[in-house]
């Protein structure tokens, strides 16, 4: 197992924005996260890849405590992730999350999906929230759908709305849990384009994905997970051209052979 630390962190950024120390989690007998140590710097884009069942989604979901952990410590911007209650809700508001299945609020319009958080969690005035929402929807190219319900939009459009909904909270970090895995192939790029744009603007991102193109284009660091462990981490070019571990070589061989 090689886990060399890459000096991708800009010198000025100080303490890491997201930090996991000795994180362990079991699903019954299954040890899904084994002693995970990870630090993500401000503005860094980290792509997590690995075979299914490697624990990468669980890792992503643990960072805003949609999954609890058995032991270890997760901190966001220096604050330890609270166990529950108001403090946890407050911290989650600072962590944007984009799901594989979009999870737009099905009974609310596209516009309401984006304004709900700012109004109900941040206490923003509704007019102000609407302006913010419209500008974010415009940014991801779905502002002309604002009055529709989620079910009336394509998967790609729904996922871009989900990105806008997360951005409306002005999060410190964005988590993407396989954001393109449920999409038809022709819609993948429109979502990836929005994500690349976000990365270029300096958003801190942790992205679980199978999209190697995105990793090459936008990632500062690639983390390869297998069997609940971080097997190796490297800059994208380095990882794709010269993987160190056998598991990574095997995995890349399988997905890049076509």
């Amino acid at each position: 197992m090689t886990s060399e630390q890459q000096p991708t962190v800009p010198a000025s950024s100080g303490s890491p924005l997201v930090s996991l120390k000795n994180v362990n989690k079991h699903f019954g007998e299954l040890h899904v996260l084994r002693d995970i140590n990870l630090e993500v710097a401000r503005g860094e884009v980290v792509v997590v890849i690995g075979p299914s069942g490697s624990g990468k989604s669980t890792l992503c979901r643990a960072i805003n405590r949609l999954e609890t952990i058995d032991d270890g410590e997760i901190t966001i911007d220096g604050k330890v992730l609270p166990a529950e209650g108001k403090a946890l809700a407050k911290l989650r508001a600072d962590v944007g999350m984009v799901f594989q299945s979009f999870n737009l609020f099905a009974h609310k319009s596209i516009l309401e999906n984006v304004t709900l958080g700012p109004v109900k969690v941040r206490g923003m005035k509704s007019g102000e929230a609407k302006d913010l929402a419209m500008s974010l929807l415009k940014r991801v190219g779905v502002d002309n759908q604002a009055q529709k319900l989620p079910a009336q939009l394509s998967g790609g459009q729904q996922q871009r709305v989900a990105i806008a909904r997360a951005l409306a909270m002005q999060p410190k970090v964005m988590l993407f849990d396989e954001p393109t895995s449920a999409l038809d192939p022709e819609m993948i790029n429109e979502v990836l384009d929005a994500m690349v744009a976000l990365a270029k603007e300096g958003m801190t991102m942790i992205v679980v994905t199978h999209e190697m193109g995105f990793a090459r284009k936008a990632a500062d660091r690639v983390i390869f997970m297998a069997d609940g462990q971080i097997m190796e981490q490297a800059k994208p070019e380095e990882f794709f051209t010269n993987p160190q571990s056998d598991r990574a070589k095997d995995f890349l061989g399988k997905i890049l052979s076509h």
Binding site: F105, A162, A166
Partner: peptide, 12 residues
């Protein structure tokens, strides 16, 4: 996923 999305934007 609806509940998870609600929690993820900071609703208790």
């Amino acid at each position: 996923g609806q509940a998870e999305a609600a929690r993820a934007i900071g609703l208790s």
